[in-house]
Nucleic acid binder design. Structure first.
Lengths: 238, 238
DNA sequence: TTGCAAAACTTGTATATACAAGTTATACTA
DNA sequence: TAGTATAACTTGTATATACAAGTTTTGCAA
């Protein structure tokens, strides 16, 4: 089915990003948009709520929808984005080195958590991200074989997420993430160009599918000087 | 006005947190909830969408609303929460030391950005957070005098946000945040118990009010071993 | 018993209406 | 002219209906 409100949302995003509605100006009123898109007000409101959630506008009762400067802190790095998508967006000169690709040890804690059946094998993919010739990020990804039956060096060098979504038809839905700062391990020191830094930033996440089943563990270890996390947050009233 | 959908949301949150609906079980169907709360399905859906956005449930078409384990990574530290609220939630043994309280230099970059009128003064509050006897966090907050006419040492020792929202009636709405890792400054070394750590985690944010006006700049400098950022994210389809 | 089609559920989208509540512009009054 | 009340906007909430689309259960037929 054609999702009207999604089309309208995407259309408005395009317009905001191309400055049709500049920062701190007002979007057309809901009634104007309703007649312009030839739809109902509720459908317009669904689109506007998406814009609000994603930091494009602030709705003010009685006034209208103010366009927010979503680029104040440059590019958003929050949400669930794969490295490839990010590198693409930021136009990084990047290279991915597949350090290892195989099955995780059966007794490993992560294996136990990802396994739904004792016979399931768990993929263990370790990759190094080189940016402008420097080894900056060390990524470890764990998948249940049940969802990802086959992984090749080629897929891992390109984009695993692209493979999952476009070839396997998996629908990645939500994630719980944790960011901490740790001492580099021996492995970090060996694989990354740490340049004497005595800390790494570690992002651990649990990724879930559409049907709320746990699907992936990720550990992403960054050289601290190249790390940056950008977020848009709305205050939650209690 | 009584906001039905908000009441229902809060009621369901309470129920989920007290395990009336355990993790990975299904909530009652929208129709059941509709008749239980004696309201319309759309109102129920508004409440459920809030639950979904805040990481309590995952909606599955044709099936129902699955309760998600929102405590996998313990407590959420994302969103916009003041230090006091957080310390309260985590029951930290904490003390706030007001290091300085005054007006920011007129030529400072931040002053220029926060000022709407050349005559506006900008508050500059610098505080140290002591947790279990160790000086862990160094917070710098900047407010426009236009919104916050008076700040006392007492208010800063308690909770500024509490003062803003409950005494001044300001409605904090959204923020753009940035997390990076930096070298400690001389000031950091002097004011914090860095224990030899050679990095600090810096969280900078711009906070906006209800009416989309820029209201506050914040810089929060953490000892890296005590820093932890937890987030719930939904994948945004393009 | 097994397999399969249909029915009975579930959530998702689109529409319409009514009124509440906040903001801005208008027009009238002193 | 200045101030104020009103009207005409704006978004927010609540309700009802209809159908689409996905999942599970039911029950019938082979």
């Amino acid at each position: 089915m054609q999702k009207k409100y999604l089309n309208i949302y995407e259309d408005l995003v395009k317009q905001i990003e191309s400055n049709v509605w500049p920062v701190s100006s007002l979007l057309p009123s809901e009634n104007d948009l309703t007649s312009h898109y030839n739809t109902s007000r509720e459908t317009i409101r669904k689109a506007l709520n998406l814009l609000s959630q994603n930091g494009y506008i602030q709705k003010i009762r009685g006034k209208g929808s103010v366009v927010i400067d979503s680029h104040k802190f440059s590019f958003p790095v929050s949400g669930i984005e794969s490295y490839t998508e990010l590198a693409d967006k930021l136009q990084l000169e990047t290279r991915t080195i597949v350090h290892s690709l195989g099955y995780l040890d059966t007794n490993h804690d992560i294996a136990k958590l990802l396994r739904s059946d004792p016979s399931d094998n768990i993929w263990d993919v370790e990759r190094i991200r080189e940016i402008s010739g420097e080894k900056i990020i060390f990524d470890k990804d764990y998948f249940n074989e049940k969802y990802v039956p086959l992984l090749s060096k080629e897929i891992c060098e390109q984009s695993i997420y692209d493979h999952l979504e476009n070839n396997l038809g998996l629908v990645i839905s939500f994630a719980q993430k944790e960011i901490v700062v740790e001492e580099p391990t021996e492995e970090d020191r060996k694989l990354l160009d740490l340049e004497g830094f005595s800390n790494v930033v570690v992002i651990r996440s649990q990724v879930y599918l559409d049907n709320a089943s746990l699907f992936q563990f990720t550990e992403s270890r960054h050289r601290p000087d190249k790390f940056r996390f950008v977020d848009f947050a709305r205050r939650v009233k209690n």
